[in-house]
């Protein structure tokens, strides 16, 4: 029995299903945003701001951000464990990955809830 100490959940099944659920969230958000941009060919800043003033859209965006973090954590962790073999380098890369994803998440929350 082996489990990566810096993997997202240390459980293969849970990592696998989280990656699939997050992929669906990312796809739906991307389709919605593309649709919105197509519907507003002459997009004005105020229209863009109005979109982000909806609480539901902020929550949707935050959900997408969390999905990106989970999806990337699982995916890039897998790539590192496939291709980076020296354990110390793997450890450093995995730590940097987790810290930058968390920083991305906090920055995203700051941006989303900083809109007035």
């Amino acid at each position: 029995m082996v489990a990566g100490v810096l993997s997202l959940t240390r459980n293969g099944l849970r990592d696998w299903i989280l990656q699939r659920i997050s992929a669906v969230v990312l796809a739906v958000y991307a389709i919605y945003l593309i649709g919105f941009l197509l519907m507003h060919p002459y997009l004005h800043y105020l229209q863009w701001l109005a979109l982000f003033h909806h609480t539901w859209f902020r929550i949707f965006s935050l959900l997408t951000l969390v999905s990106i973090v989970m999806h990337a954590w699982i995916g890039i962790w897998t790539v590192f464990t496939d291709y980076v073999h020296p354990y110390w380098l793997r450890g450093i890369l995995q730590t940097l990955l987790v810290l930058s994803l968390l920083a991305l998440l906090f920055w995203g929350i700051e941006i989303l809830w900083g809109i007035y």
């Binding site: 990566g4 993997s7 459980n11 293969g12 990592d15 696998w16």
Partner: peptide, 11 residues
């Protein structure tokens, strides 16, 4: 249960 770690099957 013996197979549900991140490697055995999910690689």
């Amino acid at each position: 249960r013996n197979l549900d770690d991140p490697y055995s099957v999910f690689r």
